[in-house]
């Protein structure tokens, strides 16, 4: 039995992370989902949120935007629109985005795509939360 699993976080613009880790918690569609080594093959969608993984007893955090997660052959591949380490996050921008999204949801203009505005809000909140874990 393996003690580690490989975690790859891939976005269209970069490979954000490629490491051997011990465990992982992700914001999956149906709530937080924990993944340990030797997990069965799985595909699930991800909400924008904070991902947590442990490596050598140490906890690390990561912001991931909406995307997918695939587990196969002891490798977790995450495909996300965007992924940032806590210290890469532009908190100011995230705060502005949060206010903007809240305003839009409150006003409920006819042309508003509610699902999309909610996603934007979730992204902003997740970024702010992930940024709290700056090392």
């Amino acid at each position: 039995m393996e003690k580690v699993l490989k975690l790859q976080i891939i976005t269209p613009e970069k490979i954000a992370l490629d490491q051997e880790i011990n465990s992982l918690v992700v914001p999956a569609f149906q709530g937080l989902m924990g993944i340990l080594p030797n997990h069965a093959p799985l595909v699930t969608g991800l909400h924008p949120g904070v991902l947590k993984y442990t490596k050598e007893e140490e906890e690390h955090f990561f912001f991931v935007s909406e995307g997918f997660l695939e587990v196969a052959k002891n490798t977790v591949t995450i495909l996300a629109d965007a992924a940032e380490k806590p210290r890469e996050i532009d908190v100011e921008r995230a705060r502005e985005a949060k206010v903007r999204a809240q305003k839009r949801l409150k006003k409920r203009a006819k042309s508003l795509d509610v699902a999309r505005a909610r996603l934007a809000l979730q992204r902003a909140i997740a970024r702010i939360r992930a940024a709290e874990h700056r090392e």
Binding site: T44, G45, F68
Partner: peptide, 14 residues
């Protein structure tokens, strides 16, 4: 593969 929550939902986003 196991699909969480189910195939159609995954496809919806994929």
């Amino acid at each position: 593969y196991i699909f969480e929550p189910h195939r159609a939902k995954v496809l919806d986003v994929l």
